[in-house]
Amino acid sequence: MSEFLAMGGYAAFVWPCAGLSFAILAGLALAARRRLRGVQRRLRQLNARPEEGAWELRA
């Protein structure tokens, strides 16, 4: 186990690489889901009250 974690002396490079990769994957998946949910929520509000805020929906 400790041999596995040591990565033949390259632990300082291999593990940050793996950690960063998984962090970016998690960030991408969560950001995409948040974006879709956010758009749906804003549009539901807009459809309920069409007179306000339509112009600021550019983003």
């Binding site: 889901r33 956010g38 758009v39 549009l43 459809n47």
Partner: peptide, 30 residues
């Protein structure tokens, strides 16, 4: 697979936003 799934989710948000005035988009959001 992962990146196409994430891209499709983003594209759904993008299309809903762009077509927000269309009947079908309103139905989907509702």
């Amino acid at each position: 697979l992962f990146s196409f799934a994430v891209t499709l989710t983003r594209a759904r948000a993008e299309v809903l936003l762009r077509e927000r005035g269309a009947r079908w988009a309103r139905d989907v959001v509702a």
